[in-house]
């Protein structure tokens, strides 16, 4: 116990650095996947058959295979198979590959949630907009969007909380996120070796961050409570 207290400041410092990388991956994934998901959702609902088929094919592949394999393929395939390492070396290369894998993966999940949200808005809403002379663009942004957002907040919250924990999968390509940082103390890092408790301790980071997110997302849900659908 005394030893742990002695090691604590060093460990927390290293884990903080790792968790910063976790947070970067988390926010970049959301930033990219929220809009890309909408594009894929519109693609899958498109009347152009080729477009909707390609979108659904992409969703099938991405949702049908483990994110860990997607990470490995996206990171290693260009360099090892095509002999053109496009990601560049080091941590920035790993981060770029991880970001792209996560954005693509989450965009596909979001797109299905969006699609459900859009399709659940009654067709009468769109018709009301049309007879009032609104353009399809105006109808989407002024009428449909907020009703869709209200419907999708609970399932999106679920995905967001899953994403916090999924970022740990980036460990597989040695991205220096918080799990990687915790594990390092087993092999030896910052003069500490053979310690497994820092790895267990990373769970606290996830727990606290997800606690904050849960409160924020509940607040958003409450904010949209002023109208009913």
């Amino acid at each position: 116990m005394e030893l742990i207290l002695e090691q604590l400041p060093v460990v927390v410092g290293a884990l903080n650095t790792g968790f910063l990388q976790t947070l970067r991956l988390f926010f970049i994934t959301l930033l990219g996947a929220f809009p890309l998901g909408l594009v894929i959702a519109f693609g899958s609902m498109s009347r152009i058959r080729l477009l909707s088929l390609s979108a659904r094919f992409l969703i099938w592949i991405i949702r049908g295979t483990p994110l860990m394999i997607q990470l490995l393929i996206i990171y290693y395939f260009p360099g090892l198979v095509l002999h053109s390492p496009i990601w560049g070396g080091g941590e920035s290369g790993r981060f770029l590959a991880a970001s792209i894998s996560f954005v693509l993966n989450y965009a596909c999940y979001f797109s299905e949630i969006y699609r459900g949200g859009i399709q659940s808005v009654p067709v009468g809403q769109q018709e009301a907009g049309l007879v009032l002379g609104m353009t399809r663009h105006q109808i989407f942004f002024r009428v449909t969007l907020l009703q869709m957002v209200k419907r999708i907040v609970p399932p999106i919250s679920n995905e967001v909380i899953t994403l916090v924990k999924d970022t740990s999968l980036a460990r597989i390509i040695a991205l220096q996120e918080v799990i990687w940082a915790g594990q390092a103390f087993m092999k030896g890092s910052h003069g500490i070796s053979g310690a497994i408790w820092p790895l267990f301790f990373t769970a606290v980071y996830y727990l606290i961050f997800n606690g904050i997110l849960t409160v924020l997302l509940a607040r958003l849900e409450k904010k949209l409570d002023y109208f009913r659908i």
């Binding site: 007879v131 009032l132 002024r142």
Partner: peptide, 29 residues
Amino acid sequence: RRKRLHFGLVFQSFNLFPQYTALENVRLA
């Protein structure tokens, strides 16, 4: 779209926009 404006339509199921107040519903278009 322009031609529709010669006609108004009141639906059986109202189809008011739920996220807007009565006043905003009337004002939006």
